[in-house]
Nucleic acid binder design. Structure first.
Lengths: 116, 116
DNA sequence: TTTGGTGTATTATGTATATAGTACACTAAT
DNA sequence: ATTAGTGTACTATATACATAATACACCAAA
């Protein structure tokens, strides 16, 4: 995993985990890697992963059993609304960004099609 | 202007100025506000604006005459390639983001049309 | 030549991020 | 009870960002 220097690493890791959950790479109820293990995998400090899990817990995306580990939420509803939330943000960023650049909605679609 | 807390202010200001240039709100050769003036307008520290202008100068988007001020580049070519660069990035972020979320290219377009 | 408006440089302070290292609390399995 | 693997808490250090305040260098116009 590569990190963008201009965005805090812990936020990038959070987004990445959310993506994995939404796409089903991480399934509902599944155990996440331990703080130390994920820190090792991503080559970041355990404190950074601790912050990641705390934030995910706060958002009810994961839950933690002390001494046991951190798990993906079992609420499918949470996951589906997470997917909708993320995709909406991506679409909004795109439309707003292109509009600000002077592209009309028509031009925006044709430019997109042209790119694909 | 509102700032996103997770991204350095100076980068957000840079992006904003680039946008204004690309859309023609700031025209080729036009004088930019002075460091102190823009700092006042945006309610940020002059040092932050100094950094903004230094970076824009480095990218040849602007040029600075010491003691005189900072001006938008006179090279229309620089501006048009800037527009292309920015729009490409927006499109790429969109397509990549949606793909990572599990949307195929077809779904991606239909979801976008649905949104508009 | 002086003045006022430019950009530029420097030092200091506070906050957020990230790392490093250590210790503690809890749980399951031995 | 002990052990190993969890999450959690704490202190310290380094860096980037942003602010604050001050001073300096340059240029055009009065």
């Amino acid at each position: 995993m590569e990190f963008n220097n201009n965005i805090p690493i812990y936020l990038q890791i959070i987004d990445n985990i959310k993506q994995d959950i939404v796409v089903g790479k991480l399934k509902a109820g599944q155990k996440m890697p331990s703080v130390r293990e994920l820190a090792g995998i991503l080559k970041v400090n355990p404190n950074t992963i601790q912050r990641v899990y705390q934030e995910l817990d706060r958002e009810k995306i994961t839950f933690t059993k002390r001494g046991m580990g951190t798990y993906v939420t079992e609420e499918e509803k949470t996951i589906s609304s997470l997917k909708e939330e993320i995709s909406k943000k991506i679409i909004l960023d795109f439309v707003e960004g292109m509009n600000k650049l002077g592209f009309s909605n028509k031009e925006l679609i044709s430019t997109l099609k042209e790119y694909l």
